[in-house]
Structures are given as structure tokens and as C-alpha cells.
């Protein structure tokens, strides 16, 4: 009995040590579908501060964590522009947020963001998440990473989290267009059927700890 107990303790010790060896990205947790979103204020490329509540006309937002430098984010850039073209008029504009630390990803500085937004004629805000608090609160881990938010009264709730579609390399070959499907269902007053998906992307370039 004693022996089996000590074996048990030894096992427990191993489990605990291994447990502490587990490490996750800084953005542990974050929002789940259905969660209420805390409003934020971030600086847009035009110098103005943008918040969710600042635009009373919208029914929601297509929030896209993205950046200048990630090849996967770039592969989706035109699709993000197209999403805004299609859904801004229906009350769901795109809100692009760059969460990368420019110290780690030099091409993602505020000046580079301004240039990219100008070159590609972004018709939506491109916000700098300088403290990375918004990305952390959302639980964003990568670029691109989409959160569709729906207004309910004064609040915004998460209706969809994940990828834009299921073919990064070739938009035309995508057989699932997750964000468009979710938007179609939201606009029709229906529940989003596929409310969470995963996709490959670039790890958010978190600030290096001093």
C-alpha cells in the first residue's frame, strides 16, 4: 500500500513538472463566440482614434487582425478589401488591426501601415494596437485572424472567430467562405452555423520582454 502510494506521488510529481513545462502563446484564453466585447480606442492611419462605439450607424464589425509583413495576411489582403466593399454598406465595415510590435517586425511600423493603407486604398480603418492589449484581450494569435462582431443593444458580441475561407493560396478555389457565410446568416437574422474555424497564419509578433 505504502509502495503504491509513493509511486502515485512520484507520478503526480512528474505530471506536475511536465505540466509546468507546457507553455502557450501570450494570448491565452480570449473571447469565445457569444462573448461581449470590451470597447477599445486605437489610433487609425489617419491619426484619429477609433472605437467600436464611435459609429452609431453600424450593426457590427468584421475585425481583422492583420499586418503588412505576414505572407498569409498579404494573401488575404484583397479578400479583406472585398469584404469591406460587400458588407460596409450593409452595416458591417471591416476594422483592420495591426497587433505586431514594429521592433520585432520592422515592416509593421505606423508609417509602413500608413503607406500600405494608401497604396491599397483601404476604405476602412487600419488601426495600430501599440500595447497589444486589444489582441491579447481578443485572444488573437495570428495574422490574419478574423472576429465578426454583432451589435446587440449597446454591446458588441462575438458572432464568428477564425479564417476568411479555406483556401489561402487561391481565393477562387475556396470551397468554404466562412466569413461570407457567417455574414449571410447574420444579415438574414439567423444563427451563424460555422462560428469558429482555424487557419494557418503568422504568429503575432509579441513585444520581447525587457
Amino acid at each position: 500500500m505504502k509502495k503504491s502510494l509513493s509511486v502515485l506521488f512520484a507520478l503526480l510529481a512528474v505530471v506536475l513538472t511536465v505540466g509546468t513545462a507546457f507553455r502557450f502563446a501570450p494570448a491565452e484564453g480570449g473571447y469565445q463566440v457569444g462573448d461581449k466585447v470590451a470597447d477599445f480606442k486605437l489610433k487609425n492611419v489617419d491619426g484619429k482614434l477609433v472605437s467600436l462605439g464611435g459609429n452609431a450607424a453600424v450593426k457590427g464589425y468584421i475585425v481583422v487582425f492583420t499586418c503588412n509583413t505576414c505572407p498569409y495576411a498579404r494573401a488575404y489582403e484583397d479578400r479583406v478589401i472585398a469584404l469591406n466593399q460587400k458588407y460596409a454598406a450593409k452595416g458591417y465595415p471591416v476594422l483592420a488591426i495591426n497587433p505586431n510590435d514594429p521592433q520585432v517586425a520592422p515592416g509593421d511600423s505606423y508609417a509602413d501601415m500608413q503607406k500600405r493603407a494608401k497604396d491599397k486604398h483601404y476604405a476602412f480603418p487600419y488601426l495600430m494596437d501599440e500595447t497589444q492589449d486589444v489582441a491579447r484581450t481578443f485572444g488573437a494569435t495570428r495574422t490574419p485572424h478574423v472576429y465578426v462582431l454583432q451589435r446587440t443593444g449597446q454591446d458588441f458580441k462575438v458572432a464568428y472567430i477564425g479564417a476568411i475561407d479555406n483556401n489561402t493560396e487561391d481565393a477562387k478555389a475556396a470551397t468554404q467562405r466562412y466569413v461570407e457565410d457567417a455574414m449571410g446568416q447574420l444579415l438574414a437574422g439567423q444563427a451563424v452555423q460555422t462560428s469558429s474555424t482555424k487557419a494557418i497564419g503568422c504568429t503575432i509578433k509579441w513585444k520581447k520582454k525587457a
Binding site: 502557450f24 494569435t141 482555424k198 497564419g201 504568429t203
Partner: peptide, 12 residues
């Protein structure tokens, strides 16, 4: 991604 590891978000 889930077929490899359910706790992986897909970030590289």
C-alpha cells in the same frame, strides 16, 4: 490543424 493538435490555433 485540429487533426494535428486540438490546442493549436494555427499560428506558425
Amino acid at each position: 490543424i485540429d487533426g494535428i493538435d486540438r490546442q493549436w490555433s494555427g499560428a506558425l
